[in-house]
Design a protein around this nucleic acid. Sequence first.
DNA 1: GAAATACTACGGTCTTGGCCGAAGTGTTTG
DNA 2: CAAACACTTCGGCCAAGACCGTAGTATTTC
Lengths: 250, 250
Amino acid sequence: MDTGPKIAQVAALVGDPARANMLSALMDGRTLTASELAYVSGVAPQTASGHLAKLSDAGLLALEKQGRRRYFRLASPLVARMLEGLMVVAQEGPARQRNLWRGGETLRHARTCYDHMAGRIAVAIADRLVQQSFILLDEDGGQLTDAGRSFFDELGVDLRLASKRRVFCRPCLDWSERRPHLAGAVGAAILRHALDHDWVEHIRDSRALVVTPVGVRGLATTFGIEGAPPTDGRRAGCITVPRLGSGYPG
Amino acid sequence: MDTGPKIAQVAALVGDPARANMLSALMDGRTLTASELAYVSGVAPQTASGHLAKLSDAGLLALEKQGRRRYFRLASPLVARMLEGLMVVAQEGPARQRNLWRGGETLRHARTCYDHMAGRIAVAIADRLVQQSFILLDEDGGQLTDAGRSFFDELGVDLRLASKRRVFCRPCLDWSERRPHLAGAVGAAILRHALDHDWVEHIRDSRALVVTPVGVRGLATTFGIEGAPPTDGRRAGCITVPRLGSGYPG
DNA sequence: GAAATACTACGGTCTTGGCCGAAGTGTTTG
DNA sequence: CAAACACTTCGGCCAAGACCGTAGTATTTC
């Protein structure tokens, strides 16, 4: 039962700040180029190249070549899940200036997690679906009830898009709420539906989502969520995530 | 709000082979001493000491001092979950570790704690003895009543074996149940009685105990405990959400 | 073809941190 | 009390690896 060394290898890979930054940036399922990842991780391209090679060799990242660029993304939802687990523990530390967070509030409210939603809103949705017996969740799996199936049918959410290979429905522990939200094909479908109907919008290039006025109504009628947008007056939380889009040197 | 560095810190902690071995050994919920952890991790005690300090400081391990020993255990189920996530990625396949976790269930049911019993069964025994006024317990001590003395006499438990020097009867906080079970000479006598009468058996070289069919009857008639064998707390389709915040003593 | 772009390979520097021997603290035993 | 035991602290050794400058290899653009 010598699992120790194996998990040490993986953990050591994530244990470098530069690599951890890269993985964090990829958490929402985006694909980024080597240059972009070098920038977000704060190291020179040569250094980043080495890191990316290691991460790819270890099977944490998937690589796609296109012309002179290399696009990287997380190799599988399992990797995202692993990172979520680390985040949960990492957040637990001594209660420092937790409020020092800027824009953290927005992230806590709603964000993407790989390909589904996370944050208060997502947890509330999961709660509602469970409470209504549309979904049955246990520690690491879940399933749709018949009632749930028709609920999503009426909503116009097509769950048949789900590939057979991927997990259909599972809980994903939310690092900000410490309670599960929905991942898997069902979670992805809900996010797609929310984006398609303009319930939520991406903020710039971050993982944060804002709930639109339309979304407030939609969430209320569909899921019974009273969730107003994070703040009223000023812009719902200025995300302080370093700009990815325009900040590249050169 | 950059989560990268934080998860890097945690991951780097797990990223050392010696520390990873320690954490793996604790995955099943056991409590191990510094020496034992030094052994399983394959490093000298001095080195292990440093590792354990780091893991404790980071909040991954919980520490309990007893005498000249230090007992370590995973600080929370969230840590176990994180390790599980790493294992999944590390070994490219379905987590077989499920079995270990099941073993944790066995530990929670009945195990030895030094020289006495711990776990659900032990807590139930203590409850019963207190409820029957056979034993009076307070915060850090306890005493046998006359009724209790004759109860043990009839049972054939010889309490006079107790060395003079050792504590006769005291409560010991059960880490899995978070309620006290019996330690001291009385606790030791109960365990000896249970082993002598084949009520329980040691599992392999672990501290886990299984309750035999004989034991089920014995516990029922003697202590009025309905305790079926390790009830194997299988699914029961329950939501585990509420358990996230609790389950382990802080 | 030449230049710019995106990325990779190599080599040398330098910090980090794991490791253990020796010595020290606190606890139990006899 | 002394000895055994469990663990920690200190100090020096050493290797792993993160980093970047330089110099490459593809690919696209002009």
